[in-house]
Design a binder for these strands. Structure first.
Lengths: 339, 339
DNA sequence: TATTATTCTGTTATCGATAACATATTTTAA
DNA sequence: TTAAAATATGTTATCGATAACAGAATAATA
């Protein structure tokens, strides 16, 4: 590999002069500039960011710690994150925790060893607090997305889960549903708790008894709804829910598949509403869900990285920011259903 | 930050001894081990991979250079890549080129400066040859996925585009279609050429005249099919295609949206077949495409990283491997259509 | 017992870059 | 004309780790 020393020798200057040329710092005569430039061209020099990082203590690398890149929500987050990072001269390391605390802890160790400048993360659950404290202890800035962690004060980009859940549930009520099930994520994740709160309060306000057999807690993961769906279907006809509120996209899709496997037609025989988009047909026929609360996932990533870099570069306000993005409601029209 | 020097001082040994403890290398007395271990625990040492990389010339970081992580095909590639990388102790840097050569070149420079150990990439097009040569010149191992580049001999993981295209086209013929359009990707991408070859040869074998007005070349990008669809729809009823072969998932989805915007019902009034899955409903009603050639995207990433690391670690065979994965055909059944 | 091999630890140099300081030359201002 | 400021370049130390070499102490062998 060609180093500044090789360039220095070839150009008959000191390595420091080469360094100055590369960084456009300090004074330099036109002639020296030309000499150095020529040597760099001839030898094909490429700076070693590694060596630079060692002394500057900045890697210009960020870590994106999400639960699963194949979840379209996080795919868009990642895209937003990468776009903003590139724009500001940073690179992104990708990690999937699979909602798994020990995997998350693993990655946190790697994050520390790699000396990334900051972390954008969607915590696996409330227990993540220990990982966040570890980052804090090592002064690694981080921004949380999608999920809040009690006892950690930090920049935060969330969706309004409560409000979205209320609207989805209200929509089902308006459609005449009274037996509404909820397929929720795990209670150790803040969004799951908020969505449940929205669901329950809406039903309570409508004076509707909540049957605990209608509430199921599974993972926010691919293909996890089958057992819960069977549970619902095993109920007596009179107790069986006529609609399901799925707490995220994966749950909704899994539920739809499970229902169809059991010969239950969606939406004819079971209405589904959910958080997140179901791409690529959101709000397009053939519709799938009667309503969805679409989150601006790209912005989560884009803003998250922006906040993170501001924090890293000391340009952020002293107090932490908490952004709550409103989900955009999509309601299937009769027309889209019929078509 | 705590360094091995801090540990050394605290444990009353030399830094080299600490390094030996960390790397489990050389001889070491039990007592020294205990002392070092204790100091590490007390001070909370985290190794600096950066410093290690500087001397070892290995970063344990790989670059994943794809066109767009939001394309579900590449999302799965990324997931497969990350899984394998983690398993083998590597990290993944994510980059999106957007099928854009200058962005790709940009990233290649960053790759070189970052001293990543290798690159898994889906080249933006034939012109990528210059970027690949640049990697070669700097002895950075790379593996290509999805797209082949003439004149570059390297490990390669492809889908059988020709065969998939033949089967898709044959399916349309069997369904009775005679006016079959192709919405292809750019000719400077190998998969586009191969898919076109499959399409054309199938039609030729069936003695069907190929109307050049039915062949449109657009980008393998989101939402790029609208103009081409209008072109098709502007043809006289007798010349208008009754089916469209979309060369990838993005093109198919965009085409379906465009058709619906023009009031053309899919699939009732226009049949679509395409390469890649249309998640999350592939082969599930409500169907969208009459047939699709689904590629094992996860494996592209997983195997790609495996090959790459073998190459990096000198465990790969001397001659380059060329893997051609067969797409899995999905045909919508009458039943799924009727539902 | 003398000699060689094994075990254990330390010292010095190095990876590639930059910060901090030093020196020399030229320019500007007093 | 001379001191001070601006320009131009070089030297040394350092970031945090490890490779290579060296020197003890102990154990094994002849």
């Amino acid at each position: 590999m060609v180093t500044i020393y090789d360039i220095a020798k070839r150009a008959n200057v000191s390595p420091m002069t080469v360094s100055r040329y590369i960084n456009q710092s300090g004074y330099m005569s036109e002639e020296t500039k030309r000499k150095v430039e020529k040597a760099i061209d001839e030898l094909g020099y490429v700076p070693n960011l590694n060596a630079r990082s060692l002394i500057s203590k900045k890697t210009k690398i960020l870590s994106l710690l999400i639960t699963d890149i194949t979840n379209p929500f996080f795919t868009k987050v990642a895209r937003g994150a990468e776009d903003k990072a590139k724009q500001l001269g940073y690179q992104i390391l990708l990690s999937n925790t699979d909602e798994n605390m020990s995997k998350e802890s693993d990655y946190i160790e790697t994050v520390l060893a790699t000396r990334v400048d900051g972390v954008l993360l969607a915590p696996a659950g409330d227990e993540s607090v220990k990982n966040l404290k570890r980052l804090r202890k090592h002064h690694i800035p981080f921004v949380l997305i999608d999920r809040e962690i009690q006892g950690i004060d930090c920049d935060l980009i969330l969706g309004d889960s409560y409000e979205g859940a209320r609207k989805l549930t209200e929509h089902l009520l308006q459609q005449g549903h009274r037996k509404i099930a909820m397929l929720n994520g795990p209670a150790h994740i803040s969004t799951a708790r908020e969505r449940k709160r929205g669901y329950e309060e809406t039903l309570k306000l409508a004076d509707i008894r909540i049957d605990q057999r209608w509430i199921s807690e599974i993972n926010f993961k691919k293909d996890d709804a089958h057992a819960a769906i069977e549970q619902f279907l095993s109920l007596d006809r009179k107790d069986r829910p006529t609609a399901i509120f799925a707490a995220n996209n994966f749950i909704a899709v899994s539920a739809i598949h499970a229902l169809r496997n059991h010969g239950v037609k969606v939406p004819d025989e079971m209405t589904i509403v959910c958080f997140d988009d179901i791409d690529p047909y959101t709000n397009t026929s053939p519709y799938l869900t009667a309503a969805s609360a679409s989150q601006p996932a790209y912005d989560y990533g884009y803003m998250g990285i922006q906040f993170l870099i501001e924090r890293i570069e000391g340009k952020a306000p002293a107090s932490y920011r908490r952004i709550e993005l409103s989900p955009e409601m999509h309601f299937a029209t009769t027309e889209s259903i019929l078509k």
